[in-house]
Every structure is written in structure tokens, then in C-alpha cells.
């Protein structure tokens, strides 16, 4: 009893409301996905949802295609974003901060409006909608999430490593590949986290950019839930969760870094 009293008067106990909240709204719902995924419509335990997925070439195709689009988007974001982050990390602080702000600012426009604006841009330039528009739109939507973490790691990098490499006779190319690039890997991996998964899981975006010709995995999940196929939808979500877990294991090193992502302001 006394122990309980001590606990409730200490500031540790302040974790409790959030702990309870998280259990109800985060952990239990996730367990519900697992429960629904492994039961059929009548509530009996079964693997029918997964065999349905494996028997459905369309769902698997969408899944594989989504991963492909996500990989291309992620690579595109790295290829275009890395140089930008690199240039910014070498500019003076005030200037680079302003530019970073400018990169992040469009994120505050509703994602659907941004996407429709991209469609308008393609119409305006008389370019056809389709795969090209899809990749452009995805890179457009997610590149700030790549530039920002890479910029952060490059910014914090100790400049004397570069000087040391140069003193030891490395040329510019070697300095980049052997020193700068490896040191910026944490930034890249948190960028990958923030680009790869959202690309697969967005829904509606792909349809708008391709005039309903291409859909990604997120849409498949949403359609099934919408059509009251909750169990199948839950199974597809679980497959996605595994993918998320795999991606986040791949980038665990950068966890400390990505947790500072809130410092945009």
C-alpha cells in the first residue's frame, strides 16, 4: 500500500495515462489485426486469408509492383536528395536553414491537393499521366523526408575526417566514397524508412496520378476493408506490417537520429 502511494506521488506515474492510452489505441488494435488475419468470416481460426492472397495473382502482383515503385522512388529520392543535402550542409547555417524550410514547406499542403496539383502540372506541360507521373509524384511527395535526415547527419559530421583523408592523399572521389558516404548512412537509412513505407502504403495517390490505371498495395487494403472483407484486409495489413518490421530492422542504427525528426521548427 505504501509502495503504491510512493509510486503515485512520483513523477514516474505520469507515464500511466499514456501507457493505458497506448495499450487501448495502439497495442490492442495491432493485436486485432493479427486476430482478424488468422480467422475467417465466422470467427474460426484459419489461414484462409493467406491462402487467398497466395492464390490471387492480382494481389501478389500489386504487392510486388508496389515494392518496385517504392524502391524506384526511394532510389530517386536518394539520387536527387543527396546532392541537395550535401550542398546545403556546406553552405552557411542561416542560408541552409532557410532552404531546408523551403523544401519542407510544401508538405503542409494537403497531400491530395499536392497530388492533384501534380496532375495539373502534367496536363499543363502536356505530358501523359501514367508510370512517369506516378514516379514523379511519389518523389515529389517524399523527397523532403530524404533530404532532411541526410542533411542532419552531414551537418553533424566532423569536418576533420575529410581533411584527414585529404592529408592522407585521398582524391575527392575517394573522400566521398570512403569517408563522407559511410558516415551519412544513418541519415540515408532513416530517409529510406520515411520514404519506402509511405510509398507502398499510400492510397488514392497512385490512382490520381495514373487515371486509375495503376493501384498500389495500400489501395488494395483499403478496398477490401471498404467492401467489408475485414479478415482479408487484416491479413494484407499484417503482410505490410512484416514488411515494415523488416525495413525498420534494416535501419535500427539510425533510430536515435530519426527520433530527432521533430526538430524541424
Amino acid at each position: 500500500m505504501k509502495k503504491a502511494l510512493v509510486f503515485f506521488s512520483s513523477r514516474k506515474s505520469w507515464t500511466l495515462p499514456y501507457l493505458i492510452f497506448s495499450i487501448v489505441f495502439v497495442i490492442v488494435p495491432l493485436l486485432l489485426i493479427v486476430v482478424y488475419a488468422f480467422t475467417d468470416e465466422n470467427g474460426h481460426m484459419s489461414l484462409v486469408n493467406f491462402s487467398k492472397f497466395l492464390a490471387h495473382p492480382e494481389a501478389i502482383n500489386t504487392f510486388v509492383y508496389s515494392i518496385g515503385v517504392a524502391i524506384i522512388t526511394t532510389l530517386g529520392c536518394i539520387l536527387l536528395g543527396y546532392p541537395a543535402a550535401w550542398i546545403l550542409s556546406r553552405s552557411n547555417m542561416g542560408y541552409s536553414k532557410t532552404i531546408i524550410m523551403l523544401f519542407i514547406l510544401p508538405m503542409w499542403v494537403n497531400i491530395l491537393i499536392r497530388t492533384l496539383a501534380t496532375v495539373a502540372l502534367f496536363d499543363f506541360l502536356r505530358l501523359p499521366l501514367g508510370e512517369g507521373a506516378l514516379i514523379f509524384g511519389m518523389i515529389y511527395n517524399f523527397i523532403p523526408f530524404m533530404i532532411y535526415p541526410i542533411y542532419n547527419t552531414l551537418q553533424k559530421m566532423d569536418r576533420s575526417y575529410i581533411e584527414a583523408a585529404q592529408d592522407l592523399g585521398a582524391n575527392n572521389f575517394q573522400v566521398f566514397w570512403k569517408v563522407v558516404f559511410p558516415l551519412s548512412l544513418p541519415g540515408i537509412s532513416s530517409g529510406v524508412m520515411m520514404v519506402f513505407m509511405p510509398t507502398i502504403s499510400t492510397f488514392a495517390i497512385a490512382e490520381l496520378l495514373t487515371m486509375n490505371n495503376i493501384k498500389l498495395f495500400g489501395t488494395t487494403i483499403q478496398e477490401n476493408i471498404n467492401n467489408s472483407l475485414w479478415n482479408y484486409g487484416a491479413a494484407l495489413s499484417l503482410i505490410m506490417l512484416f514488411l515494415i518490421a523488416a525495413t525498420s530492422l534494416f535501419s535500427t542504427d539510425s533510430k536515435n537520429d530519426s527520433s530527432q525528426g521533430g526538430g524541424v521548427w
Binding site: 487501448v24 489505441f25 495502439v26 489485426i33 483499403q222 487484416a234
Partner: peptide
């Protein structure tokens, strides 16, 4: 967890709840 999960998982899981 909610940050990693992404919108769609958060949405589906809460819908089921």
C-alpha cells in the same frame, strides 16, 4: 510504433478496434 506503422496500418487497426 504509431510513427513506424504508417497511416494505413494505424487506420486499419483502429477501424478494427
Amino acid at each position: 510504433i504509431p510513427i513506424l506503422n504508417g497511416d494505413i496500418i494505424t487506420g486499419v487497426s483502429l477501424f478494427l478496434l
